[in-house]
Amino acid sequence: MYSTNLSYNSAFKGQIPYRLFAKREMLPPRNDILWRIERGAVRTLTWSEDGTFITLGYWGSGDLIGSPLSKIKPYHIECLTHVEVSIVPPHLWYQDVNALLSRIQQGEELLSIVHRKPISLRLWQFLVWLSAKFGRDVEQGKLIDVNATHQEISEVLNTTRVTITRLLQEFEGEGKLLRRKRQIILRSPHLSPSHSLNN
């Protein structure tokens, strides 16, 4: 069931309607439009036959998302934050070639990270990828502005929540990151994706 409190923003930028969604809402499945994220973060996901969630990607400001970009069924788009999206009808898709190319590149990059070994390297490179996409500079390093749970991270990286929790504790102990409630700050000297790990 989708929330009924979705409403069009009263402002129309370039005659394209905007819609607002709350955290954890699902964007309605539409085969006739794409959504451009103007503000916020979402994840695309499906699930396996046994009910295990499979995260397909994380998307933020400037990214295009929507059912026409995937052949995977079921296909859902979940808001990780409050989200503002604009509606892009088919006759305007040709104007967004750069956004579509960026989506392909990000998808391939994430896919390559998911297959890295050992799992410690896989997790670290995923955190660096998130910080590049959703991070903002703070005094201690780069704050990841998406509060992904340990369970959600484990679903992306095809491992267990317990493993993610253990590795994050190890990274924190080694000074690679700081944790504040659900927020993660990557320490600046360690931000290179190729930074070697001893785990």
Rank of each mutant, 00 (worst) to 15 (best):
P28K: 03
S70M: 02
I37L: 13
Y58H: 05
E84T: 06
H82K: 14
D96G: 12
H76P: 12
F53R: 14
P28E: 10
D50I: 02
L100S: 07
H91V: 03
S61D: 15
G51S: 11
L45W: 14
F21Q: 09
F21N: 08
R30C: 05
I87W: 11
R30G: 06
E49G: 12
I72H: 09
W93G: 04
M26E: 15
E25V: 00
H82G: 14
W59I: 00
H76L: 14
L100F: 08
R43H: 11
Y94E: 15
S70R: 07
G57V: 01
L100R: 06
I77K: 01
S61I: 05
G40E: 03
K23M: 09
F53K: 12
P29F: 00
E38K: 13
I65Y: 09
A41L: 06
L56S: 04
V85Y: 02
S48I: 01
A41S: 10
L80D: 11
G57E: 10
I77Y: 05
Y94H: 15
F53D: 11
L80A: 10
L45D: 12
A99M: 07
W93A: 05
D96V: 04
A99I: 01
W59H: 13
N31P: 07
C79S: 01
E25Q: 09
S48G: 13
L80N: 08
P90M: 04
F53T: 07
L80P: 07
I77W: 05
L64R: 03
E25W: 00
D50V: 03
G57R: 05
R30P: 11
L100A: 07
R36P: 03
W47L: 13
I72V: 11
L80C: 12
R30L: 03
L69W: 02
L56W: 08
F53M: 07
I37P: 08
R39Y: 08
F53S: 07
G40H: 02
P68C: 07
E25Y: 00
V88S: 12
K71I: 08
L34E: 01
Q95W: 10
S86Y: 12
P28N: 08
L45F: 15
F53I: 05
I77M: 04
L64T: 02
I33L: 09
L34H: 01
R24Y: 09
V83Q: 04
S61N: 15
A41N: 06
P89Y: 00
R30M: 08
G40M: 02
P29G: 01
T52C: 05
G40Q: 01
L101M: 11
P68Y: 03
D32Q: 06
D96R: 11
V83A: 04
K23Q: 13
P74I: 01
W93Q: 09
P28G: 03
C79F: 00
I54F: 08
L101Y: 14
D63N: 12
W59G: 02
T55S: 06
